[in-house]
Design a binder for these strands. Structure first.
Lengths: 148, 148
DNA sequence: ATACAGTCTACAGTAACTATAGGTTCAAGG
DNA sequence: CCTTGAACCTATAGTTACTGTAGACTGTAT
């Protein structure tokens, strides 16, 4: 069977919300879908696939531009996949950094929550701890260039 | 010594960039600093401390609103610290989720990069893998195969 | 037949910055 | 003292990736 889905069902299926799907279409990331008699979007499996790809990549932390690049690479399957590989590698490196930082920060937060047990703010370490850089294991903010 | 710093020095010291400091001031997160004769901002240690707190919290993933809340809590040190604790706990939970997902995604990316070794895109799994949800360990958006 | 959930377009708003233009201030070198 | 160039100032616009709203239309379940 043709298995065409309305935008709402696609949204549910992919965990993406309806406006976001329309947004992706608008910026040219998703192809224009066919429309019903009443002008409603109807998606086939390939569109769902593509959206899954996009969402998945977004969750991996790829910016839309990188995703756009990957898609356009995919449309020229004769080329070497070096470029796609490079994008993935770059992203991988970034993810490694983010993981490390998140882990360090989690233990810090855990300690904070542990220390703050129904006391008063005067004795509460949450705020103090957050102001104190010496307790932080990641030493990458002595110099600028944050924002990954 | 009075130890007053220009905005640029504060920026370097905290890893925050100059515009961002002005932005924080503009949205009322940082107090108005005193100015030099020539109208340039001059910061004392307490401002640097506060900015450190903000940056640190941002790195922990706190949104500016949560930070605003924490700051206003800190200004009423007689209250119970339950509220601050709640904010931290909430954030901690969120970080846990992000960690899990990032870890899952990293192994996926690693596999992708591994499989894509100088081949052609036709044989390259980077794009395919990113479209394939079955390989993903987080299953929070599963497709409803047929209409319920 | 009607209710009502889902969809449509168009546009405004959000978070958290980042960049630009066009001017002023400050510290160092000649 | 004068100049030069980096750092600073304000104001405004742009960025990314969405999210929300208004007001009208469609599709379907009862």
């Amino acid at each position: 069977m043709s298995n065409e889905l309305t935008i709402g069902r696609v949204a549910k299926g992919t965990g993406c919300n309806v406006q976001t799907i329309r947004y992706y279409e608008q910026i040219g990331l998703l192809p224009l879908p066919r429309r019903s008699e009443g002008n409603q979007r109807l998606y086939d499996d390939s569109a769902v696939q593509k959206l899954s790809f996009i969402r998945h990549a977004r969750e991996l932390g790829f910016p839309l531009q990188a995703i756009r690049d990957l898609i356009s690479l995919a449309d020229r399957p004769d080329k070497s996949c070096e470029a796609a590989d490079a994008i993935a590698r770059e992203q991988l490196e970034d993810i490694g950094k983010r993981l490390q930082r998140l882990q360090a920060l989690r233990s810090e937060l855990e300690r904070m929550v542990e220390q703050c047990k129904g006391g008063r703010i005067a004795d509460c370490r949450v705020i103090e701890t957050l102001g104190d850089h010496s307790l932080c294991e990641t030493d990458d903010h002595v110099l600028p260039k944050v924002r990954p």
